[in-house]
Design a protein around this nucleic acid. Structure first.
Lengths: 227, 227
DNA sequence: GGTATGATTTAGGCATTCCTAAAACCAGCC
DNA sequence: GGCTGGTTTTAGGAATGCCTAAATCATACC
């Protein structure tokens, strides 16, 4: 059953379930409700519909997991979303921290034909502007980065691979700091008790809240520092 | 009240009413229903909603006319539609006769910001790929062309200014014939009793049904021929 | 002037997707 | 092992926008 057979609502649910599943495993009703901005009661209702369509496995009171069919559609939606983000940033110059909201609307109206054209114009990119991988046409996607900025020890250096685009305010904050994919950082100090990290970016030091830093995925740890 | 405050359905109704109004003046329920692909009963219902929003003037059994507020929104939607058509054709290479269907979906998700970016990338174009004028940002639009191909006499030459994009099959036919904006045509023969016109296009002669030709808007009549 | 015919509106329903309020469930704690 | 607090589901309802079938209207013709 192709993507376009499903309502925007269904597409949004599947996309969001996929995202949460990557972080938490099984997806609880409340978490899904909060992420979607709907009431838990509404989410229960829609979940039942998704289960009837064989897009999720649903055990009452136990949350949901995507079926292979559901995952396939989720990946198609995410591919649309990330390709469009990339396109908006690269071809139309939309600021890095604003593409997400725009893509949220466009992802639902992208035809296969246009998807291919955009993909080709961009030269078949593999990541979106936030560094998140773009699912491939065959429905596969590289595994997510697991090291977070907040996992680093004092003295360690790394290259930012990806920043979270869930929270628009956070995204603006990252943009101001210059914390974006490809940028090198060094951890200068780590406060105890979950306090802030001090990181060096372009020879300027910034204190970053540990919770905020936890949103930043990092790969390619460059130097081990004092470890 | 900005465009985005209205549902896609409302936007489609207003756009379509505007189009029909240009041809027929007051818009009858049945005509609107047919163009939208809805039942007349549904259209009556929506019309009442539009009237309650002060977007149309509605007299039961007498059809509708757009109010200034309704016309403003219609022009914004049409501007979106035609800018996107142009963009798809020029920037993404979507074939000339396929942009309409694609734009039909995209027109509803275009933000003001992106509208401006696309407008600038294209160099502020004044017509869409079918030759139809793009409404200006201030809500004005050049008057439509009134001369039709079927109005020409034998021997007259003219430059195609615009072709209708209402009917996809017609559009494909025009594309095959090479009958597109900017192309010069000469009428070689006019059959009596509403029969076909024979027109010369690039030294090739084509017989075109009179009704079909009536869909082609023409401007700049070049030579008067035997007239 | 009555009447047929087509256009239009009303009446009654259906599907989607959301909501609030109330009931049911589950788990951890005394 | 019962209680309690948070989670989840059920119940009942609202808005949108579409439908068919049945009534009503407008008009053109005899």
């Amino acid at each position: 059953m192709p993507l376009s057979e499903h309502t925007e609502s269904v597409q949004d649910y599947l996309k969001t379930i996929f995202d949460i599943q990557r972080e938490h495993g099984r997806v609880a009703t409340t978490v899904l409700a909060e992420r979607l901005g709907n009431s838990p009661a509404s989410v229960t209702g829609m979940i039942k519909k998704l289960a009837a369509l064989n897009l999720v496995e649903y055990e009452p009171y136990q949350g949901v997991v995507l079926t292979p069919a559901g995952e396939k559609i989720a990946l198609e939606v995410i591919r649309h979303h990330r390709l469009i983000e990339r396109y908006l940033a690269e071809a139309l110059g939309v600021p890095w921290d604003q593409v997400h909201a725009e893509a949220e609307k466009w992802e639902h109206v992208l035809s296969e034909d246009l998807e291919d054209r955009i993909d080709a114009v961009l030269g078949y990119p593999t990541t979106d502007p936030h560094g998140a991988p773009i699912p491939r046409r065959d429905g596969t996607m590289p595994p997510p980065h697991t090291t977070r900025l907040s996992d680093l020890q004092t003295g360690q250096s790394a290259t930012i691979a990806e920043v979270s685009d869930h929270d628009p305010a956070m995204l603006r904050y990252f943009a101001e700091l210059g914390l974006r994919p490809g940028v090198d950082v060094t951890v200068v100090a780590v406060a105890p008790f979950g306090g802030p990290l001090t990181v060096r970016l372009d020879d300027v030091e910034h204190a970053v809240g540990r919770e905020v830093a936890g949103y930043v995925a990092v790969c390619d740890v460059t130097s081990a520092g004092e470890e």
